[in-house]
Amino acid sequence: MAERKIRVLVAKPGLDGHDRGAKVVARALRDAGMEVIYTGLRQTPEMIVEAALQEDVDVIGLSILSGAHMALVPRILELMKAHDLNDVKVVLGGIIPDEDVPVLKQMGVSGIFGPGSDTQEIIEHIRKVVSLE
């Protein structure tokens, strides 16, 4: 029987067009044996949450470099709650100022990885927070 795989949605909400980081992370997660659903650029919070629901992912990975994270992330978390996706973890990457980190974690973001983060760190974090029963 096939073992259970960790499924991760990697999405880029907002309007910046820099998807290199998201692609590097997607590739790293693939190499760690995870199934990555890559949705591409300019996703709205509604698109991200609907895709996460249909794909039944364990983790939503967001990459935001536009500075709009304090608007986008709360909206996504709110929609997740509305769709009862309470067990789905949210991991955030991109340009996130230090002062925003505790606020975002308080809101429910499980991990935040800025520039220079080691992909191994991200993989370990995801493996730790996703409990595969």
Partner: peptide, 17 residues
Amino acid sequence: SGGAVLGDRIRMRDLHG
């Protein structure tokens, strides 16, 4: 690795909503 990148949704964004 046993992992995968599933990218077909990229071309299906019009169907959202």
